[in-house]
Write a protein that binds this DNA or RNA. Structure first.
Lengths: 129, 129
DNA sequence: TAGGGATTTTGACATTTGGCGAAAAATATG
DNA sequence: CATATTTTTCGCCAAATGTCAAAATCCCTA
């Protein structure tokens, strides 16, 4: 899992921006990166240079090296979050997912799991018919 | 782009290469970066992208982080990788939640985060009224 | 449903990056 | 010295980045 897919990276950025309830324009202002460029990055048409990446870290509440690792610029070995997520049953928890969830109170985290189980049962019953 | 560090950076690279007694050609081979490009980087005519920088780290016996910091891509604060505390905004990821989620494929994990952000925006709009 | 502001996307363009091959400069070797 | 051989620098080109302005979309409310 050296370099995550570049398309995925844009998705992560967009999700994080939405999570912080920022518009492209607002993020542009905070990060000093043009909104149009940000938009292209989010939908995977452009890939941010290290310079741009660094400007994005703070407004999006990422550690710099975290963001660099997500972008595939740094090997995730140098990322603290990666170590922190243990591998259960052969699978592993995505570092970004871990980060986002851990920002929520535990009740919310549990609720998310509840919703997931509901969705799974819905999906199961749908494929049966 | 007259960042005085940039010229210095090339010097550092050159010094390190000489230190390892490598020619441009040899370093090019080891790093998979063309010798001409390396030459320009060393004398400050070009500035290496993160991709190139990463290829240079190992042959020149630098830590990736270190090299990125030298290039000004990472603030030197990020160099101290001693931060093994996850502690995102003072919160932790519930172990049970981590366990359940990590049993799902990453796409599903990401989707869960997406749903969470939707719910948060719903909650926000509800409290507004 | 039309108008108007905010937000996002697209088009056009300048700048930078990086590779290839040849010229130039060093460095050996006879 | 003369000349191979290696090493560095230069010229040129293709691809990627990033910005500004205009166009398209979305979201309201009258």
């Amino acid at each position: 899992m050296v370099s995550s897919n570049r398309g995925d990276f844009g998705e992560i950025i967009r999700q994080q921006r939405v999570m912080m309830s920022l518009t492209l324009g607002e993020l542009a202002k905070k990060s000093l990166v043009s909104a149009s460029h940000l938009g292209r990055i989010e939908r995977g048409e452009r890939f941010p240079s290290a310079r741009i990446l660094r400007r994005l870290a703070k407004p999006l509440d990422f550690e710099e090296n975290e963001l660099f690792a997500l972008a595939g610029y740094l090997s995730s070995r140098s990322l603290s979050v990666a170590e922190e997520s243990p591998a259960y049953a052969g699978r592993r928890l995505d570092p970004y997912v871990a980060k986002v969830l851990s920002q929520e109170p535990v009740e919310v985290q549990r609720a998310v799991i509840g919703i997931l189980s509901i969705l799974k049962s819905i999906a199961t019953s749908m494929t049966k018919e």
